[in-house]
Design a protein around this nucleic acid. Structure first.
Lengths: 241, 241
DNA sequence: TCGCGCAAAAATGAATGCAAATTTTTGGTC
DNA sequence: GACCAAAAATTTGCATTCATTTTTGCGCGA
């Protein structure tokens, strides 16, 4: 078989792999992949709609081979479905799938919180604290957009503070899958949930300040559970733009 | 018909009936992907070694196009690295990467335990209890192989009981990435760790019996942490077989 | 009018071909 | 004998081409 690989014994090239290929490779294929992923995540295609190979080829100025490679990757990421001999479809989330994805997000955030408590620096915490106060200000003035921006920034910083590359990648993947779920509108009407979320964030900041890993982990999971409960169970169905 | 296919290559009856896609792929591409993934995970290629396209094409009796598609997917799964213009390499885990992967595994198991407490049936629990006693018996008679088999079966059942498809997939992915890390030998020498692991499993079963989700979650994460500590920080470097 | 069947057209999946880049080999120089 | 440069050979990346499947369009008959 393949046992005739004598160079592996010497392995001169394995000694110098300074490349950090973990998340994104900077090659042409990586570029196209990122572009196409954004194109899907941003909602340029309707959920359940066919992914038109030909059109996308013209759109990105490439042939079908690299495009199909990217589609296979996107399918493995759960963004699209590949039906044998029937092409690719934008994955459409049913209620059950959405619940499952939210739970995994909760587990990942819980993990991130725990690790962050172990690794975060004082400066890193100060930055999160600052974002928290910004978000609180947005909450007070009923600035939904500002609140959500701050909220997402805080959660991203916690994942960053966890300093774990596979976690970062996996988290980004699930966040992308759930990006199309809209819940802002609901929060707008559900004033109670908004206040509750704000209180939960107070707890989050407090636990993080005390570096209470397991406690923060639990708070974050429940936080995501509540977020899910408040979320609309319906994806955005609009395609264009 | 195909004009010039190597006689020994193709095995048409290997084509399985068209399963519903849902989440997993069931086509020819899916078959090849699973085969290639197993081929890599099983350790047929040395870590850091080149993945020879040509040879694998002959090995699986296909052309380069589907093989390269599969390689792209494997790269997105973190099993191999893709270096621009320089081919694919089997990903080699450094100590830091191994630690990071173990932590994510811990987070996933913690999540699985929490969800399992919510969803597991009495029959499901009874099955895990049975496996636990089997494992304990193996522990008593110092049957390392039997112990590990039972251990893995229990953890798999917990993930199954969580009844969350994305979690299952992600868990399988990380388990595959860590498959090459060998720690059995260490456990054999570290009698203390073995007893400690057994005690932790008692706690796991107890928490699961009481459906104490957050508690089980915490136990499982710490269990994985301890497992990591006992693990060899070195991958198996052998290629063949 | 509606359904059925058949043929044309489009799309998918995979193989082959070709240019660019890399690795290896060869030859020359100090 | 070691080191460096240039050319050959291999490999990679992508485009193009081919066979098969699916979908569409249309005519026919009940």
């Amino acid at each position: 078989m393949l046992d005739s690989v004598p160079d592996s014994a010497v392995d001169p090239e394995a000694a110098s792999p300074p490349r950090i290929a973990g998340a994104g490779v900077a090659s042409l294929h990586g570029t196209l992949l990122a572009q196409l992923r954004d194109y899907v995540v941003e909602g340029n295609l309707a959920p359940g709609a066919r992914v038109p190979e030909r059109l996308l080829c013209e759109r990105f100025g490439i042939s079908r081979t690299p495009l199909r490679e990217a589609l296979k990757v996107l399918a493995s990421e759960g963004l699209i479905d590949l039906l044998p001999n029937r092409g690719a479809r934008v994955r459409q989330l049913g209620p059950d799938e959405m619940v499952a994805l939210f739970d995994v997000m909760g587990g990942l955030e819980a993990l991130a919180g725990r690790l962050a408590c172990e690794k975060i620096t004082e400066a890193g915490f100060a930055e999160i604290e600052r974002l928290h106060h910004e978000m609180y200000a947005a909450y007070l003035r009923r600035d939904l957009h500002g609140y959500f921006a701050g909220n997402q920034a805080i959660h991203d910083r916690i994942v960053e503070a966890a300093d774990n590359e596979p976690l970062r990648t996996t988290y980004a993947n699930f966040a992308g899958r759930l990006r199309r779920v809209r819940y802002a509108a609901n929060l707008d009407k559900d004033r109670d949930r908004w206040g509750e979320a704000m209180r939960e964030h107070e707890e989050i900041l407090d636990a993080l300040r005390r570096r209470a890993g397991p406690e923060l982990s639990d708070i974050l999971f429940r936080h995501l559970r509540n977020k899910r409960r408040a979320a609309a169970v319906r994806e955005t169905a609009t395609a264009g733009a």
